[in-house]
Nucleic acid binder design. Structure first.
Lengths: 336, 336
DNA sequence: TTGTATGCGTTATCAC
DNA sequence: GTGATAACGCATACAA
């Protein structure tokens, strides 16, 4: 590896001048500029991040901690984050935890030991208290999830309203028996979406049936199993709202296997509007989040925080919308 | 931020001793250990990666450059990589390029400036020559793809054989008109898979129809469009082999929309055995790659290289297998 | 416009 | 078993 010293020697200038060549070229004379340029190219010199980071006390890197990389939902969010970060000279580094709390904790050391300047979290396995402590010491922003009353700033959609609108849409189609398949975690989004579901029913004066609320993983298995349970009821639901497209696919697939026509015998709405919902047959209606913007806004918030401005507890809500496809339709007379 | 100096002062020892507390605790006496432990905890001290990395000239981080994060195919590979890396004290950092060559080049600076100790590439937009130059200077390994005759070591399945087997399977079902939808990139995998397709036909003495080979993106759109084209032929294919599940889904969806029964009127085999192929209705047959093992083996190779052993040009092939689901069946009499 | 000199936080070498 | 100190590569304050 070449060092700044070798370049300086080769160019016949001081190390300070070589440093300026990279950090303040405007200060150098044209002739010096050329001398250094030649030496840099000849030696194929690249300033070491190790020395620079120590000296400047920053790395210009941002860590993004995700539960899993496999959800296509995250892809565009990361693109938005990456674009916004690059505008500010930062680079995004992604780490998947696989939902494992230990793995998440190990990733945190990158924040502790200053290997990165800040971090973005989606869901976290950290307790509210611990996450709060983290956020009060390190530049941390949350995306798509947030802890009520936390000092950590966050960017999200209005999950309660989104669920309310999705369920209301189903009710508007004439459905009276609308089920919900939620996640069994304690994420704020899960809680809020269930709240929205309950409020939608209440607003239409439809009695809540607790057995129509199922909780499980984000896997499509959960959808299939829940559907099986629903069919075992004396009055099965004619519509299902799920908190993830993958769950919705499970429901749809199970329904198709039972010979039902989805969009007629059964209506289904998923969440996140992933490619899965778009390409499935039938196409699955879903609640779309502004992914790219969520990512961009999250990084903007982090940049604010990094530049010293006060962002404690700041919450940014972005608009969602319902995408209607083939999996939703008027309540079918035969099932009423 | 606390420094080692502050901890040393608080504990009443030298900085060297504090350093030993973290790096060689065995050398310290029990009483010193306790003193330092107390100080570390009291100050909530975390050794700075900035200082350590400069001093040791390594970061114990590995960069993984992926085209996109949205393909669930990568998820398990990354898990395998992460597990194997952690065994060796390394951390995996993922960066998506979105297939953008400029983005990929910007990521390379992390390698050049030693922000990471090594890197893993999947496909790359770098020319063979440039990638070779990179690999000869930096610890780089390729996963799932490789450049014929490159110094960069690589881990992959035998793509030619995998395609050969998939197509042979279709031929074995009685199909004689078997199409292939390939990617339009110049990746080795695309070339090899097409080779396997051609060899399978040749082995069965079936004449090759060039119009049955389509090339496009990995998107499901490509599948749908290609299917449309196939239907416009005087003798459309009765089976299609695609180099990605997403493409296969496009084919299946378009076929369903035309009223065809997939698995009967049309057989389809995808590639990568992603969750998409598993959850689609009908389930889509696919060529499965040993994802976790691909990831693990890739990191093993990189570790070898990092520990100074010679790995130039080393190629590791892992076994694949064909997963049969509902999208493949005997050739349908009505379509012969 | 350019050079000299210092220090960032750590590890490692060499004493003791 | 422990301490003093040099060195890692760079950016920057200060001098010239």
């Amino acid at each position: 590896m070449k060092t700044i010293k070798q370049v300086a020697a080769a160019a016949g200038v001081s190390v300070a001048t070589v440093s300026r060549y990279f950090n303040a070229p405007g200060q150098l004379s044209e002739s010096t500029l050329q001398k250094v340029r030649r030496a840099v190219e000849e030696l194929d010199y690249h300033p070491s991040a190790l020395g620079r980071n120590l000296r400047t006390n920053r790395t210009k890197k941002i860590l993004v901690v995700l539960p899993t990389i496999s959800n296509p939902f995250y892809s565009q969010i990361l693109t938005g984050m990456s674009d916004e970060a690059e505008k500010n000279g930062y680079t995004i580094l992604a780490c998947a935890t696989g939902g494992d709390p230990d793995s998440e904790k190990r990733r945190l050391t990158m924040l502790y030991d200053q290997f990165v300047d800040g971090a973005v979290f989606f869901s976290t396995s950290l307790s509210k208290k611990r996450f709060d402590a983290l956020a009060s010491q390190y530049p941390v922003v949350q995306c798509c999830e947030y802890q009520e009353g936390s000092v950590a700033p966050a960017v999200s959609i209005d999950n309660e309203l989104a669920a309310y609108e999705a369920v209301s849409y189903l009710l508007g189609l004439g459905h009276t028996q609308v089920a919900m398949i939620n996640s069994d975690n304690q994420f704020e989004s899960s809680i809020l979406r269930e709240k929205g579901y309950r409020r939608a029913l209440a607003d239409k004066g439809i009695p809540l049936r607790e057995e129509l609320i199922r909780r499980g993983t984000y896997g499509f298995r959960n959808g299939a199993d829940s559907f099986g349970f629903f069919r075992s009821l004396k009055t099965p639901p004619t519509a299902v709202f799920t908190v993830a497209d993958s769950i919705a696919v499970g429901v749809v697939r199970a329904a198709l296997e039972q010979g039902l026509t989805v969009g007629k015998d059964l209506s289904v709405i998923g969440f996140d509007d992933t490619s899965l919902a778009r390409v499935y047959t039938p196409g699955i209606s879903s609640v779309a989040q502004p992914r790219r913007e969520l990512g961009e806004e999250t990084i903007r918030l982090l940049m604010e925080r990094l530049s010293g401005r006060e962002t404690a507890g700041k919450l940014v809500f972005l608009p969602h919308h319902l995408v209607i496809r083939d999996s939703t339709g008027n309540v079918c007379p035969s099932t009423v």
